[in-house]
Every structure is written in structure tokens, then in C-alpha cells.
Simulated scan of single mutants.
Amino acid sequence: MTGIHPAPVLIARIAGARAGGVIGVLVAVPLMIVVIVLLEEFQGRFVGTGDKASAEASSR
């Protein structure tokens, strides 16, 4: 279980198919997951809403 809603996965697969055919379908979902993880990491570092910020705030 990845915790990712099926709708973005379907959209990523369709976009991957339109952009790169079969290879695009195979690459689309892992690429989407990488982008999601990077966005969450940057949000946590620069906005201060990530898990690290929450852990630091609760330890004070």
C-alpha cells in the first residue's frame, strides 16, 4: 500500500501514454511518486510543515 489515491495514478498513466507510449506508462507512476516526495520534502523544509518541523516543535 502506497497511500496514493488511484485518480492521480490514472492521470499519470494517461499522460505517460500520450507522451511516451508504453515506456511512458511504465515511467509515469514512479516519476509521479518522486515528484510528490520531493514536493513534500521541500514543503517541510521551507514552509515548516513537514514531519521534521513537527517533531522539533513537539520536543520543545
Rank of each mutant, 00 (worst) to 15 (best):
E56S: 08
A53S: 13
H5S: 13
V47H: 02
L39T: 10
G21W: 09
V37I: 13
T49N: 06
P30Y: 13
E41Q: 08
M1R: 12
L39V: 15
G20H: 04
A15W: 04
V9M: 07
L31C: 03
V22S: 00
M1V: 13
A7R: 07
L38R: 06
G44W: 02
E41K: 07
R18C: 09
S58R: 10
A12W: 10
V27S: 02
R45P: 02
I23G: 02
I4N: 03
V27N: 03
G3E: 09
S54A: 10
T49I: 15
P30W: 14
M32H: 04
A12T: 05
I33D: 01
M32D: 00
K52F: 14
R60T: 11
A55Q: 08
S59H: 10
D51P: 06
Q43F: 15
I14S: 11
R18H: 07
V25M: 08
R45G: 01
F42G: 00
Q43L: 15
L26C: 02
A57H: 11
A55D: 10
A53W: 08
I14Y: 04
G44V: 05
T49R: 08
D51G: 08
T2W: 12
H5Q: 12
S59L: 14
V34M: 06
V37D: 07
V29Y: 03
V22A: 05
L31Q: 07
H5M: 09
I23V: 14
G48V: 04
A15S: 12
A28I: 06
G48C: 06
A7T: 12
V27A: 14
V25Y: 01
R60A: 11
D51C: 05
F46D: 01
I23F: 06
G44D: 00
T49E: 04
I11V: 15
P30S: 01
L39M: 12
V22H: 05
E41A: 15
E41L: 15
V35T: 08
V27P: 00
V27M: 09
G3R: 06
G50T: 03
S54D: 12
L10D: 05
E40P: 02
R60Y: 11
E40N: 12
I36K: 04
A19Q: 11
P8L: 10
I4V: 15
L26F: 12
G48W: 08
G21P: 03
E56W: 13
G21C: 06
R60P: 08
A28Y: 02
G50Q: 03
A28V: 06
L10P: 01
V22Y: 06
V22W: 05
D51N: 08
